[in-house]
Design a binder for these strands. Structure first.
Lengths: 99, 99
DNA sequence: TTGTACTTGTCTAAATATGGTCAAATTTAA
DNA sequence: TTAAATTTGACCATATTTAGACAAGTACAA
């Protein structure tokens, strides 16, 4: 599940056209299309709007949004998986220290 | 292990001062200090130089370098771990498709 | 075949990240 | 207690990313 897939799912379940959701978000429909196809990132603040519009947990939107950002960085990398795991270790280590 | 820690380790094992390695890399010592403390990223091309200087596997340098970039993005994020895992799934899925 | 929905390519301004410098402060070692 | 080594803070130019607009193209029903 990507952030784009999630947004499309939410929109379709609400019976909205791209143009309608785009209007509610204050962007053009072309842009929303790219967002749903994970070709462009949505502005982070707009996650709040999605949360209000669709009553969906903001935590899930945030983590999918962030995951998309990470993926776009490692997508073409040889060492993608290794790097992700190393970063994970670093996060865990930091969490330990601050616990 | 972070990229900064790795670089420091390599430098110290080679018996070099920061100023000496900085010179070989063509940067100032202040900058190298920040690199070793993971406060600044090293230019990616310079990984090749490190590889040549210290005969250390480039793959490890690359993945640590990339991990550092990822970590700097998720460092202050609530959903850091979840996002990393989601990104991991996406990488695995992509690898399956292209296999 | 015309309209509706969606996608895609090209372009842009503004924001952010990169890749540093330099001087001053601090730490460590002799 | 100095001197050498390292760290830190402030600053800066350039490169890249973000967050879009807009027009043209495609897909598909009616």
């Amino acid at each position: 599940m990507t952030i784009g897939q999630k947004i499309r799912e939410l929109r379709e379940n609400a019976g909205l056209k791209q143009r309608e959701l785009a209007y509610k978000l204050g962007v053009g429909e072309g842009f929303l299309s790219k967002v749903e196809n994970d070709q462009k990132p949505l502005k982070r603040e707009d996650l709040t709007k999605l949360n209000e519009l669709f009553k969906t947990p903001i935590e899930e939107l945030e983590s999918l949004w962030l995951a998309n950002k990470l993926y776009s960085i490692v997508r073409d990398e040889e060492s993608a998986l290794t790097a992700l795991k190393v970063a994970e270790e670093q996060v865990k280590y930091k969490n330990l220290k601050n616990a």
